[in-house]
Every structure is written in C-alpha cells, then in structure tokens.
C-alpha cells in the first residue's frame, strides 16, 4: 500500500486532469453537437449537407488521427493552440460532437411525428416546433444515449496521453515503468480512477432512464 501513499499526489493530479478534460470536452461537444443536429433537420438543404458531411467524416476517422492533426497538422496553416490541454479538448470535442449529433438525431426521430404535425397544425414555425415541442421531448429520450456518449468520452480522454497531456493513462505508463514489479497494483489504481468517473455516471443514467421511461 506504500505505493498508493507515495504516488497519491501524482494520481490525484492525473485524475483531476482526466476529469477536467472530459468535462470541458463534454460541454463543448454538447453545444457543437446540438448545433449540428439543428443543421441536420433544418429546412436549408446546404446546411443539412454540411452537417451530414461533418458527421460522416468524423465517424470514419480514428480519434488518434484527429488528435494528430490538431496537435501537429494545423501548424501548416499557421494555426496553433495555446496549450496541449486545449488541443486535446478541441480534438475530443470535435470528434464527440459528431456522436452527440447522432444520438440527438435518433432522439428526434423517436419523437412521434404526430407531435410535430400537431405543433405545425397549431401554426408554430420551424424554430418553435423544434425548440418547444420536439427537442424537449427528444432530450428526454436521448439522456441514456447521451450519457453513454459521455462515458465513452471519459474513456476516450485516455488517447490524450499520447499527446503530452499527463492524464491517468500517461501516469499509468510512468508508474508502470517505475514499478515494473508491481504492475497489478498500478493497473488497479488507474482502473479504479476511471471507474470513479464511469460507474456513477452509468448509475445516474440508469436512474434517469427509469424516471423518464414512465413518460412514454
């Protein structure tokens, strides 16, 4: 157990970095993903096309490649992120937004079309229909899939370890190297740290899911 005591500050900082990375990227991805979804169902065909193109590109690109381009590629067009943490947030947000949009879109599709029809019959326009009728209901049904996207994001932050962010995975590599004779303890400490983020989230999603399930 001296291992945990010796390395506690290191593990705590790593945990906080991972958490900060996940939360910041989660918020950015939610905003961007909602915007993309609105574009995907909008009346303007080019907006739909642009959003669909965006989602298709990111769905088919490994996150590692996205990281690579934001870390080392954009310099070639004379752009630069102020820090590696921010470029990691950018990579995770841009990537995750595509999947937030996927989750939201399937949520919108799950709202019975009668709802939108009724809203339109009452004379609501596109923005009102989407904003006051469809999205509030869609958000409710998408809580579980969105929650799962959040958990996946929390785990995907581990890729930032390869791009100069000292998160839990980077710390795992450092500690595994220094404690090659206690690998199992090192792995357990790191896995538990990730579970501290993922398991309560999964539990919360389950609770919300059961609550909202009654409404349908």
């Amino acid at each position: 157990m001296s291992f945990l005591a010796d390395n506690f500050p290191l593990l705590r900082d790593a945990f906080l970095t991972t958490l900060a990375l996940a939360v910041t990227s989660g918020i950015c991805a939610l905003v961007l993903g909602t915007l993309l979804t609105a574009m995907r169902v909008s009346p303007v065909a080019p907006l739909r096309a642009a959003a669909t193109f965006y989602v298709e590109v990111f769905r088919n690109t490994p996150l590692t490649v996205v990281f690579f381009f934001l870390a080392f590629g954009i310099v070639e067009i004379d752009l630069q992120f102020p820090s590696r943490f921010i470029s990691a947030v950018a990579a995770l947000s841009l990537y995750t937004a595509a999947f937030v949009s996927e989750a939201l879109r399937s949520g919108i599709n799950s709202v019975p079309s009668g709802q939108a029809e009724a809203a339109r019959a009452l004379g609501l326009d596109f923005r009102q229909t989407l904003g006051t009728i469809v999205l509030p209901q869609a958000f409710r049904t998408v809580v579980p899939p969105l929650g799962n996207v959040w958990i996946a994001l929390a785990k995907n932050t581990s890729i930032a370890a390869g791009f100069a962010v000292t998160d839990l995975t980077a710390t795992l590599q450092r500690l595994a190297n220094q404690n090659a004779d206690q690998l199992l303890v090192v792995f357990m400490a790191i896995v538990v740290a990730y579970l501290i983020i993922t398991l309560p989230s999964a539990w919360l999603i389950g609770v919300i899911e059961r609550r909202t399930a009654i409404l349908r």
Partner: peptide, 18 residues
C-alpha cells in the same frame, strides 16, 4: 516539463514553438 512517448513529437513541438 512536457512529455511525449517519442522524441520525434518533441522535435515537432520545438519546430512549432510549442
């Protein structure tokens, strides 16, 4: 201190001014 897994990424970062 910034750490990567390989030196080539360090070299890229020095080139970019990071």
């Amino acid at each position: 201190l910034t750490t990567y897994d390989v030196y080539s990424k360090c070299a890229d970062d020095l080139r970019n001014g990071n």
